[in-house]
Design a protein around this nucleic acid. Structure first.
Lengths: 248, 248
DNA sequence: CGGGAAATTGAATAGACTCAAAAGTTGTGG
DNA sequence: CCACAACTTTTGAGTCTATTCAATTTCCCG
């Protein structure tokens, strides 16, 4: 059971171009060159508008007026926030099927950016819109799932060691996107070490060192830097459950 | 603007005693003696059931079947989770007006416990209940607010220093419960240093040291251990915003 | 291939933690 | 109303995990 929950919404046809991704975004130190950093509407199906994002494209920015929520059809999106001095926190990653961007606030709290080329469907929404009961229930379930995920993440960030964080993360990614190889699940990490670090509240170096340690302990195997085979699921689960002093 | 959002729900009269608070709970190391650690239904108003909790009383436990959500009428409640080895993470504190316990899962992920004597109203709820549109919108707004709060907390835990965490916390508590004294807002901390530590991902010692440092810098003044005057709101805001290297 | 970014590895540092003890609070009973 | 006991908070000293800064090394991608 993942965070994603199916959504079918009979929202009326949007009258605005919904979040045309304004500035090319202030990024981290390096001014990453973004090829075609814009949102390209491709059409809509009567329910929402389909948008194509190229890698690095911004769907919406922190502080922008919130008017829509989105469902990922393909590719991957990261939701993040920057502190004034440049520290970055990635709240979550979203892949096909995931819904994000629903908020009761007037503006978005986070920036949504495509990690890979991606396609999303946007649904306009206002707090005071009439809600179809069925849709309302779906949305409610979706947001509840998001809340549970965020609270779980807070636990991980607040009380877990680097190894425990990475373990939890790998298992969660495996649940979401894991292929099932002969023996061990294989996870395709579509994000960089820096992304993982910013999601787990660590530095790139620590993430890397922890990967190395897991490799040495034969808990995982790396193929390239992005494909991870979870060789010892059970051991990873024990670590991820937080049994530092072996009480369980 | 706080996390709490008003809720009025036309839920049918519950047929079950809703979460009769089973075991006296496995607590931390010390087996704290809890005077009358049970839930005492006092009646209901046709919308929900009013429950009186004595200090330390458990409303629901992690793993228990989820059937109701709650609104605090008076007193305070903490929502927490224990790791197998005893580490504790407090997801949030709730005071009068706050709503919590709404989940799309079959069981609760956290334990809800009264910090002080408290009164809450419980509303039975199932994912598949028919939803009144107005109520659905309220619930949706409430959960969205909770999601935003949880993501904010994840940011704090993932990327902020001890001083930044405490600063953020004090400001948030001031927003929620702050009295407005002549000059500076005064916050009544109804929880212990250990509670604050478990909420901020720190140790009691670090929380205490940070309080001392703030006191020394004249950012706050302590009256007893529970009343904090925020002497320099602006400075606290700057710290809480995360301007470690002064970029803002 | 070759250039440039990303990832890994190494050495030293820093911030928070652990363990320990002192000081301050609170509640209770004489 | 004071004294004592139990608990919470604060302070101190030393340690440890993750960070910072600085190389390499590896991996992509043109």
């Amino acid at each position: 059971m993942t965070t994603a929950t199916a959504i079918r919404l009979a929202t009326r046809i949007p009258s605005q171009p919904l979040s045309p991704a304004p500035s090319p975004s202030r990024r981290m130190p390096a001014p990453a060159p973004q090829p075609s950093n814009r949102v390209a509407p491709r059409g809509f199906n009567g329910l929402g508008i389909t948008l194509d994002l190229s890698k690095g494209g911004i769907l919406f920015e922190e502080g922008a007026v919130a008017g829509s929520y989105y469902k990922v059809m393909s590719g991957a999106v990261r939701l993040y926030k920057l502190l004034p001095d440049g520290r970055r926190h990635i709240a979550d990653f979203f892949v096909a099927g995931d819904v994000f961007g629903l908020t009761s606030r007037a503006t978005y709290d986070f920036t949504a950016e495509a990690i890979t080329d991606a396609t999303v469907v946007g649904y306009r929404w206002q707090v005071h819109d009439p809600i179809d009961p069925g849709v309302g229930r779906s949305l409610l379930a979706t947001v509840c799932a998001g809340l549970a995920a965020a609270q779980e993440q807070a636990l991980v960030l607040g009380r877990m060691s680097a190894a425990e964080r990475l373990s939890t993360f790998l298992l969660r990614m495996a649940e979401r996107t894991g292929h099932r190889d002969e023996t061990a699940p294989v996870v395709d990490l579509f994000m960089s070490r820096t992304d993982i670090a910013d999601h787990l509240g660590l530095t790139t170096e620590t993430v890397s060192r922890t990967f190395t340690e897991f490799k040495r302990r034969r808990l995982i195997a790396l193929e390239g830097t992005t494909h991870v085979a979870l060789l010892q699921l059970q051991a990873l689960r024990v670590i991820g459950a937080g049994c530092r002093h072996g009480h369980a």
